[in-house]
Amino acid sequence: MVTDIENQLEIFREQFKRVQDEIGKVIVGNDEIIKGVLISLLSRGHVLLEGIPGLGKTKLVQTISDVLHLSFSRIQFTPDLMPGDIVGTYVVHESETGEKVLSFQPGPIFANIVLADEVNRATPKTQSALLEAMQEKSVTVGKVTHRLDLPFFVLATQNPLEMEGTYPLPEAQLDRFFFKLKITYPAVEEMHEILDRTTQVDEPSVERVLGRDEILGMRETARSIPIARSVQEYAIQLTMATHPDFESAHPLASRYVRFGASPRATQALVIGGKVNALLDDRVHVSCEDIRSMALPALRHRVLLNFEGEAERVDPDTIIEGIIKDTPEPVE
């Protein structure tokens, strides 16, 4: 038994490192983003990537899909995109016997990795087409529910600028994203590396190093990590501190937050913490793991009130304040 567990752990770490290294061949820097995306993938979650144009969001997702031996589809969200364009629709075609029949034509959502590029440019109606798929891993067209192939992993990107004519994602949809990751400008050294790699004749390429079964196995391993009640209590305290009406609400939350994070946020903290513990060569979750997951797991689940919007308060500031002021359980 011990040997089995040790083997699983070894495989997990080795496979994760291979994926990370392979992605690193194309993507320069952004180690935390890559790690966050992979943690989401292994936690059965979806990721919302936010960053200004040109920082490599789409490139990152494409590289991940290249590294993983999984089906990949890309949906460019535009205002005229319809739900049927995502989930698929019934089309009339002529059978071999010459008979006209309706058959389901699956949309791009039927893939293991779906890149929803600039997701906030589509209408809420179209955005909501993703809701069922992301949460239930299935889509219903007409009266038929179609199961999606696992692993199903949605990577959505959005641009924080050029907000005109966009449709900000509703809270219900935001909550379905496991993590929200913010891509920032690369450092100068990283810029040199990007230029070196992308302005030569041969551009770097990646190999597929991880298949579907390996990913599902890694997911099982991650979920097996034990977590003590006190650490779980810490995750709950962090989440509840974002609720302005909760008795232990953080002062910043009381002032600037309209609605705090949902239980999904606590789930993200704990599951993400488990993957993080595995990556840190541990088989138990610590409060440090929970803290490291707090920003990506909570930032999009904290809904600012009018005062917070007016003062342009960054939810990260509130979460950092909560992390700083929430003590770890003694026992």
């Binding site: 009640r229 840190d280 541990r282 610590s286």
Partner: peptide, 14 residues
């Protein structure tokens, strides 16, 4: 120890 003993003690008793 990053909550190692705490986790072990919790699972010993629960």
């Amino acid at each position: 120890l990053k909550d190692e003993l705490k986790t072990a003690y919790w699972f010993i008793g629960h």
